[in-house]
Amino acid sequence: AFSSEQLARLKREFNENRYLTERRRQQLSSELGLNEAQIKIWFQNKRA
C-alpha cells in the first residue's frame, strides 16, 4: 500500500508524463522509498 504522500507524488508525475524513463523511475524509487517495480506497475495500472 502507498502512503497518501507517495500517491500524491505519483499522481503529479503521471500528470506531467504518462511514461517514465528508467532514470526517472530510479529517482522516484529512491525519493519515495519504493522499489522500481512498484512504481512501474502503478504507472501501468494508471494508464490502463
Rank of each mutant, 00 (worst) to 15 (best):
R23L: 12
R25G: 12
E22T: 13
N17A: 04
R12K: 14
A37E: 15
K46Y: 14
E16W: 06
K11L: 15
S4P: 14
L32Q: 00
L34V: 09
R25W: 11
G33M: 06
E31H: 03
T21D: 13
I41E: 15
L34M: 07
L20I: 10
R18D: 07
K11H: 15
G33H: 06
E31P: 00
F2D: 01
L28P: 00
Q27Y: 08
I39D: 01
N15F: 10
E36C: 06
L28S: 00
A8G: 06
L34G: 01
F2S: 02
L7A: 04
F43M: 02
L32E: 00
E36K: 05
L34F: 02
N17H: 09
Q38K: 06
L10E: 01
S29K: 03
A1D: 12
S30N: 11
E22Q: 12
G33L: 05
N45G: 07
R47M: 14
A37K: 10
W42R: 01
S29L: 03
N17V: 04
E22D: 14
R12A: 14
K11N: 15
A48E: 12
R47L: 15
R24V: 08
N15I: 10
Q38C: 12
A1P: 11
A48K: 13
S30Y: 13
Q27K: 10
S29W: 03
I41S: 12
E5W: 08
R23E: 15
R24M: 09
F2T: 02
L28W: 01
S29N: 01
G33C: 08
G33E: 06
Y19K: 07
N45D: 10
F2G: 02
Q27D: 09
Q38W: 11
T21G: 09
Q6E: 04
K46M: 15
F2Y: 08
N17M: 04
Q38E: 11
L20K: 01
Q38L: 14
E16S: 07
E13N: 02
Q27I: 11
L32C: 03
F2W: 07
I41H: 13
S4K: 13
T21L: 02
S4N: 11
E36V: 10
A37D: 15
Y19E: 09
Q26K: 13
Q27E: 13
F43S: 00
R18Q: 13
W42N: 01
K40M: 15
S30H: 13
L32V: 04
F14K: 02
K46Q: 15
E16Y: 07
A48Q: 10
N15W: 07
R25T: 15
S4W: 10
A1M: 13
R9L: 06
R24Y: 06
F14G: 01
S30I: 14
S4E: 14
R12E: 13
S30V: 14
F2C: 05
R24P: 01
Q44C: 10
N45M: 13
L20G: 02
L10V: 01
Q27M: 11
I39S: 00
R12S: 10
L10M: 04
S29D: 01
F14L: 03
L34S: 02
K46L: 11
R12P: 01
E36W: 05
W42A: 02
E5Y: 08
E5L: 07
N45V: 08
K11W: 15
A8N: 09
I41T: 10
Q27P: 02
F43C: 05
N15T: 09
I41Q: 15
I39Q: 01
E16R: 09
R9I: 11
E5N: 06
S29Q: 05
K40C: 14
R23Q: 15
Q38G: 02
T21R: 03
F2A: 03
A48H: 11
I41P: 00
Q6H: 06
N15M: 12
G33D: 06
N35H: 10
F2N: 02
Q44W: 08
A37R: 10
N17D: 08
A1I: 13
I41W: 14
Q26S: 09
I39T: 01
L7R: 06
T21V: 03
E31A: 06
R18W: 10
S30L: 15
I39C: 03
A37T: 13
Q44D: 15
S30F: 14
S29R: 03
R12M: 11
I39N: 01
E16T: 08
K46R: 14
L20R: 00
Q6S: 04
A8M: 09
Y19V: 10
R23T: 14
R47S: 10
E5P: 04
R47P: 03
E13P: 00
R12H: 11
E13D: 03
N35G: 10
G33S: 06
R25H: 05
N17Q: 05
S30A: 14
Y19T: 08
I41F: 10
F14A: 03
R25E: 07
S3I: 02
F2V: 06
E31N: 03
F2E: 02
T21W: 04
R12T: 09
S29E: 05
T21F: 02
K46P: 04
A37V: 12
I41R: 12
Q44E: 15
E16F: 06
E36N: 04
A37Y: 13
R47A: 12
E22H: 12
T21P: 07
N17R: 07
S4L: 11
L20C: 06
A8R: 14
Q6D: 04
R24H: 06
N45F: 08
E36R: 02
Q6V: 11
Q26F: 07
A48C: 13
Q6K: 04
S29T: 05
R47D: 07
E31D: 09
R25C: 15
K40V: 15
E5F: 06
R47G: 07
R18N: 11
F14P: 01
Q26R: 13
A48N: 11
S3Q: 04
E16M: 08
Q38I: 13
K40A: 15
S3H: 04
A37F: 11
N45L: 12
A37L: 13
R24S: 06
E22V: 13
W42C: 05
Q27C: 10
I41L: 12
A8L: 09
L7Q: 06
K40I: 14
K46F: 10
I39Y: 00
L20T: 03
Q38Y: 08
R23G: 12
Q6G: 02
L10A: 01
L7C: 14
A37C: 14
L34R: 01
K46E: 15
A48Y: 08
S30K: 14
S30M: 13
L7W: 03
E22M: 09
S30E: 14
R25F: 11
N15P: 01
E5H: 09
A1L: 12
W42K: 01
E36H: 04
T21E: 05
N17F: 06
E13I: 05
K11R: 14
R9T: 07
Y19D: 07
E5C: 07
Q26G: 07
R12C: 12
L28R: 00
A8T: 07
L34H: 01
F14V: 03
E5V: 08
E13F: 04
W42E: 02
